[in-house]
Each structure stands twice: as C-alpha cells, then as structure tokens.
Write a protein that binds this DNA or RNA. Sequence first.
DNA 1: ATAATAACAGTAATTATTACTGTTACCATA
DNA 2: TATGGTAACAGTAATAATTACTGTTATTAT
Lengths: 132, 132
Amino acid sequence: MGALKYSRQRESIKELVQSRKDHPTADMIYESVRQIYPNISLGTVYRNLSVLADMGEIIKISTSEGADRFDGRRSPHNHFICRQCHKVIDLEMENIDYIMEKAGKNFAGDIDSYKVHFFGLCRECIKNKKND
Amino acid sequence: MGALKYSRQRESIKELVQSRKDHPTADMIYESVRQIYPNISLGTVYRNLSVLADMGEIIKISTSEGADRFDGRRSPHNHFICRQCHKVIDLEMENIDYIMEKAGKNFAGDIDSYKVHFFGLCRECIKNKKND
DNA sequence: ATAATAACAGTAATTATTACTGTTACCATA
DNA sequence: TATGGTAACAGTAATAATTACTGTTATTAT
C-alpha cells in the first residue's frame, strides 16, 4: 500500500543534489531543475527532497540562518557553518561515532544517530576581516 | 554607538527561559511573559531572544521540525531530539570538546564552537510503540 | 530637566514550507 | 496493448515562523 512510483522529476532532483558539492537550498535546486523541466513546481521539489531525505539518499541540514540545505554525499560526514557568510562546508575528519555511546550512558531513550555542526569563520571571511 | 539599554521585558524573558527546564519556543515564551506584561508584543520576544542568544545568556536550538527552541542553561551541554514527539532533552554526558580539534585538522578556517544533536526515540515513545 | 536614542506595542510584510485540487504518468493486470 | 488504480504532478492557496516598519515610550547620559 502506497508504493513509491518512479518519476523523472525525482530522479533529476536526486542526481542534481548528488552531483553538487555546495549545499543548495530547495529554491536553488528548483532553479536548477527548471532548466531541464521548465514547468516543474516548487512544491514538487520540496516533496521529493523530503522523500529522498527520508530514504537516506540525501541529507537535510537545518541551520539557524535561513532555509534548509541539502547534501547529496553518500558517506557520513560532518559540517562546518561559517557564522559570517553562512556557507556550509564538508569536513574531512576522523569518525567520531563513539560519541553516541557516551551520550547514551545516562540516558533512558534510544539514540540511533547524530548531527554535529561546527561553527566559526571560513578561510575567505578570515581574509576579508584582515582588510578592514 | 548603539549601547544596550535595560528593559524589564528583556529581563523577564531572560529569567523565564533560565527558570524553565523544558525548551520553549518563542511562542511559548510569549504566552508565559504575557502573564506578567499582558501587552508585550511577540516581536519584542523574538528580538530579545535573539539579543540574549547573541550575548550568550541563552542558547538557540534549531531543529528540522517546527519552531526554534531556547535553552537557558548556563553550562555547556548537548541535546537529544526525539524523532517521534520532537521533544528536546538535555544530555548529561562527559565533555567532548576535543572533537573541535579533530574537526580542525584538515580545515582551513577557524572553528570556535559546535553543536551536537542526538536523535532517536525517547523513553515515552519507546513505551508507546510497544502498545500497538 | 532635557535630549538622544534603544526599546517598545501594534501591525504589516516576508520567507520558507506545506496543503489542496484537478490532471497526468506510471505500472500492474487482464 | 487497453484499462484501471493511484502516486506524482503543476499550479495555486494557505500556513507557520520570523522579521521589518512606524509612531510612541522608557532609559540613561549630560
């Protein structure tokens, strides 16, 4: 009941997100996919991003600033968010999954995943700061 | 230029957030503060929550689901978010600040803070699941 | 006291996202 | 290779959360 049915719009959205290294918002993805399907609806983009995130094909990143961002990278990884320009950058760092066990020690629920966001200034914003 | 000026509304918001152990939304705080200042404006609540968070007096927690939440606890700590009922719970766990150094190793920017959100099911939602 | 301005209440506007409606495309079965 | 069931669609309306605007009030320095 309620089986997932193929759609080229979803396929296109998925491929687009997975091919990009930046972390686009729903709106940015909408603008891109429109070049292939000119009358795709923004609602369709939102719905499919949500479905793809639920399936684990893409990752949804919620920041304090503005719209949610999406990441098509398969392997698990963490993110840096610049507090100046709000850019999101993938971090190449060693696995820290063991923090889940530490978190679960004095906790009565069941922890199955986590997200870490690191904050600070990116290289560009540090550079710009010096030229004041 | 632009020095911070005292206001009893801000004071009240700050005390309220810091006295609560749940993690209220702006709207919940609004409803509470209205019992003291019946004609306080929702905009005032938002503005002051933002100011207080910038000053580090309270913490802003952005989840994927619904409105942002606020936490008045002084000591640094991490949060668990239930993927069923979306409740936010403070975690009593050992300090893991060293993950910042691990994150900074192959990164060209400057990391100064981080936020970890752990996900899963809380005790109540596990209990409810069994009674199906 | 007075003057400068941060903060306010009230309201309007914006942004991001979700829901609704009639139509189309996918896919299983005949 | 028709046909029927329904997921997905485009287009649009609605909602939720947050921010901005405007005229007035409160705080603080002089």
